[in-house]
Every structure is written in structure tokens, then in C-alpha cells.
């Protein structure tokens, strides 16, 4: 496991207990200050090889995007956040999308989702031969505070799906 959860788990439980009242009152600044971010000393690394024009790219955003007519919104109420992710097709249009993420202003992304999920630009680069292939399916998360469950449950499932699509490189846009 490239993420050390031993110290995180008890610190997170304490943070939830201490922060619930502030969270429910919307005092985000206070509780973010106290959040026990997972600390790491090492940095996992896969050397990049090859050229983009031969490779398949997929995007991951944490902008809370979902297909409003086909998928449920993310849970924006729980202090733990939402561990689930949504699959977004490369052909998505602005009118297909809505945003569920309580901690940023969506007004700009509602004008142009490419500022948090630039799949249209990637498809243009594919058309120009600069990237080899844009994957059929891309991935959207919202915010997650429960980092332990994220790395033990959601991310292994995500990586299985990414591998199944033959993705070579990930482009990742947090908000």
C-alpha cells in the first residue's frame, strides 16, 4: 500500500468526532485546518516512456461531475464525503452534466466543463494525432474525507476499470 493509513485512521476518527458540529454548521475553514491529511515521505513513481501519439489517455476529475439524467448526484452532506465515482463518456456534452460538490463554486464549470474536465480538448488532440487515443470512459469524483476507505475500496475498483480500458496515462484535475 503506497499510502500509510496507520496514523490516519485514529486521527480521522477523532477529527470526525471533533468536527461534526462545525461541519453541520458549514464552518469549513475551521475543520479543514484540523483535518489529518495523510502524510507521506516517499513518492510512488512509474517512469514515463513512449510518446503520447501512441498512447491511450484517460481523465480523472474531482469536480463532482455526473450525468444528470442517468446517474445519481454525489452525497454532498456526509462529513465523510462520497467514495463513489461516476463514469463519464468521451462524448459528453455540457447539457448532459450537473455538478455535486459542496466545496467549490460550480458557476464557471457550468459554462465550460473543460476547465475541470478537458475531454473535448483531448479529443481534438487525438484528431490532430498528438495523443494516440482518448479512452471511451473517464472518471469523476466529488470530495472525499474518508481517505482510508477511498484507498482501500474505491481506488482499487477504479484502477481495475482503468486497466480494463487499456489506459496508458492519466491526466488528473482536482478542484
Amino acid at each position: 500500500m503506497p499510502v500509510n493509513l496507520e496514523n490516519f485512521r485514529p486521527a480521522y476518527e477523532k477529527w470526525v468526532a471533533d468536527s461534526l458540529v462545525d461541519y453541520q454548521a458549514g464552518n469549513m475553514k475551521e475543520i479543514v485546518k484540523k483535518y489529518p491529511f495523510v502524510e507521506s515521505t516517499d513518492i510512488p513513481w512509474t517512469p514515463y516512456s513512449g510518446v503520447p501519439s501512441d498512447q491511450t489517455f484517460a481523465l480523472i476529475t474531482s469536480g463532482g461531475l455526473f450525468l444528470k439524467d442517468q446517474q445519481p448526484p454525489f452525497d454532498t452532506k456526509s462529513i465523510h464525503g462520497d467514495l463513489s465515482f461516476r463514469e463519464i463518456p468521451r462524448t459528453v456534452r455540457q447539457t448532459d452534466l450537473d455538478f455535486a460538490h459542496a466545496h467549490y463554486d460550480h458557476s464557471l464549470a457550468r459554462q465550460d466543463f473543460n476547465i475541470v474536465f478537458p475531454v473535448e480538448r483531448f479529443c481534438e488532440l487525438e484528431g490532430d494525432g498528438i495523443v494516440g487515443k482518448v479512452a471511451e470512459t473517464h472518471y469523476s469524483f466529488s470530495y472525499v474525507n474518508d481517505a482510508a476507505r477511498l484507498v482501500t475500496e474505491a481506488v482499487p475498483e477504479l484502477l481495475d476499470r482503468i486497466r480494463a480500458q487499456g489506459v496508458d496515462v492519466l491526466f488528473m484535475v482536482p478542484v
Binding site: 480523472i60 481517505a147 491526466f171 482536482p174
Partner: peptide, 18 residues
């Protein structure tokens, strides 16, 4: 997102984030 990126790199998938 940082944790997802770290796990992807550890699993052999190169990444670039913003």
C-alpha cells in the same frame, strides 16, 4: 486526488496532475 494519483503510480500507470 493526490492519493489516487499516488496509487496509480504505484500500480504502474504514469500520471500528471494539476
Amino acid at each position: 486526488m493526490g492519493l489516487i494519483q499516488r496509487m496509480a503510480e504505484a500500480a504502474g500507470i504514469p500520471t500528471i496532475s494539476m
